[in-house]
Structures are given as structure tokens and as C-alpha cells.
């Protein structure tokens, strides 16, 4: 797997500027994730942490700058990346089972057009990948301890269980880069442990993990590297060394200076 990757970083942003309407949310951010490491993106609310990931995977338009994956654009590298969106962007009342969620990570090409409510034998005739997909789904759910819940609607699971199902979907994608938006938000202790150990296992296997994280207290325990965002990149590097008192004060306590855009606009 690692051999396939070329020398460039698995995930890098250069001079990234992203705006929500007329308000810049990310300002000139340049940062890259270390291959085979677990990196956390931290910062206060509204610092643009999630925006960084969303812009990188093409969900939010980039005003200026770029995001690259092993030196390629997201489109070209898409098949090597697993993305886990933020909890808030999902309608958890949607009638879909845990197994069906995980299958979204495996289904490819024409398989999307094969309805799966038909009897099993007829699906076998339609696509020979079905059995393999089923075992993959089962395996992924098993890794996060959710195999018993495969046929349960996602809305009937707890917040932590839902997050585990989303991780299972990412695992089933068998990617080389994992981008997770607030995976630890609002989950129980058991889920926290499963998430940490599974992500750690990925990193040990040479995969790269980048997660938006909200809790400063446990960053250093869970992650190798950290990037501190406060619309601009405040600091980045190994977690323990970077999260100094001064950095935290700069990112979390200081009011954000307004960008003097209008004065330069007419200049």
C-alpha cells in the first residue's frame, strides 16, 4: 500500500483561503499531514476546522490556494481517501440500517444500480461481488463491535454506536488517507476507546489519519501531530511540543482580529 504512494505528502493545503459568503473563514492556511501519523486539527468554535476538511474534499468552494493528496487533486486521488462527515450534517431519522450505511463505502460502479431488496439468490445472479461485499461489511462492523446491530435502523442506535458505524464505513473503504470530521463529538467511553484503537491501528499499518477534534485535553494522548487553527494556522507540529500555553492562549483566548478587507479592496 505504501509503495503505491509517491513521495509527496498524503494531504497538504497551500495558501488555502475559504469564505462563507463574503466572510473569509480560512485565511492563507498552509499545512500538511505527515504520512503514517495521526494528526488532529484543533481550534475554537468557528475557527474553520471543519471547513478545512470540507474544502479539501470539494464540498465547499475554495477561493484561493489548493489542497493536494500525494500531489494530486482530490478528484484524481478520491479512491484512496475515506471521508467521515460531521454528525450534524446527517439526518439520523433516515430509515437506513447499519449494514446499508457500511455498504455505501464498498459499492462501486454499476453495483449502485443493482437494487438490494431483491431476494439474495437473484442478486447473486446480477453481481458476483455481492457475497464479497457482504463479508466485507460484516468484517468492518465486527471491527467496531457493531456486528450484532447490522440490521438495525441507524436512528435506533446511540450517538456513539452511530459514530462507530460511520467508522466501519470508512474502514470498509480500505483507503490510505482517513479524513474525519469531529469523530469523538458526543460519543460514549466505549466508543472513544474503539475509535482510538482502530485509528491507531490504521496509522500503524502506514495509513494517514487526519481528524478535526474539539477537546484540547486529550489531543496529546490520542494524536501524534496537531495543527492549531484560528482562521489562520496558529501553530503545527508534534502534539506535545506544539500545544504550549502560549499557543493555546493565542488560539483560544485572543479575540480574532477583523481582516481589513474593505480597505485593501479598493487599493
Amino acid at each position: 500500500m505504501i509503495a503505491r504512494s509517491n513521495q509527496a505528502e498524503p494531504f497538504a493545503v497551500e495558501n488555502l483561503v475559504v469564505a462563507y459568503r463574503a466572510e473569509p473563514v480560512l485565511w492563507n492556511v498552509t499545512w500538511s499531514a505527515r504520512a503514517g501519523a495521526m494528526s488532529a486539527i484543533v481550534g475554537p468554535n468557528g475557527a474553520g476546522k471543519s471547513t478545512l476538511l470540507n474544502a479539501a474534499v470539494g464540498l465547499v468552494p475554495i477561493v484561493s490556494g489548493r489542497a493536494t493528496f500525494w500531489g494530486e487533486t482530490f478528484k484524481d486521488a478520491r479512491h484512496r481517501i475515506a471521508y467521515v462527515p460531521q454528525r450534524e450534517s446527517i439526518d439520523w431519522d433516515f430509515p437506513i440500517t447499519a449494514a446499508q450505511v457500511v455498504e455505501m463505502g464498498i459499492t462501486h460502479g454499476a453495483a449502485w444500480l443493482v437494487p438490494d431488496f431483491l431476494p439474495r439468490w437473484s442478486r447473486r445472479l446480477l453481481g458476483k461481488g455481492t457475497a464479497r461485499a457482504e463479508s466485507k461489511t460484516h468484517g468492518a462492523l465486527e471491527r467496531v463491535g457493531m456486528a450484532d446491530f447490522a440490521r438495525r435502523p441507524i436512528g435506533e442506535l446511540s450517538g456513539g454506536q452511530q459514530q462507530r458505524v460511520f467508522l466501519a464505513r470508512a474502514l470498509a473503504q480500505e483507503a490510505e488517507l482517513y479524513l474525519l470530521d469531529e469523530p469523538f463529538a458526543g460519543v460514549d467511553v466505549a466508543t472513544e476507546e474503539i475509535l482510538t484503537s482502530e485509528l491507531r491501528a490504521l496509522a500503524r499499518a502506514g495509513k494517514t489519519v487526519v481528524a478535526v477534534h474539539h477537546d484540547l485535553e486529550d489531543v496529546a494522548d490520542r494524536f501524534d501531530d496537531v495543527a492549531v487553527l484560528h482562521r489562520e494556522l496558529v501553530a503545527s507540529g508534534p502534539a506535545k511540543a506544539t500545544l504550549t500555553e502560549a499557543t493555546i492562549v493565542r488560539a483560544f483566548r485572543q479575540p480574532r482580529a477583523p481582516l481589513a478587507l474593505d480597505s485593501t479592496a479598493h487599493g
Binding site: 477561493v63 484561493s64 478587507l261 485593501t264
Partner: peptide, 23 residues
């Protein structure tokens, strides 16, 4: 206007680490 301002600000001399790359 914001987009134009972004480009101007990023090209401005004295802004660390940026010259033509961002634009």
C-alpha cells in the same frame, strides 16, 4: 469584492510565506 480583496491581500509584500502561489 471579498474575492478581489483576498487576491490583493495575498499578493501584498510583507505577508509571510505568500507571493504568487495563492493566486
Amino acid at each position: 469584492r471579498m474575492r478581489a480583496a483576498v487576491l490583493v491581500a495575498l499578493r501584498a509584500p510583507g505577508d509571510p510565506g505568500v507571493n504568487s502561489g495563492g493566486a
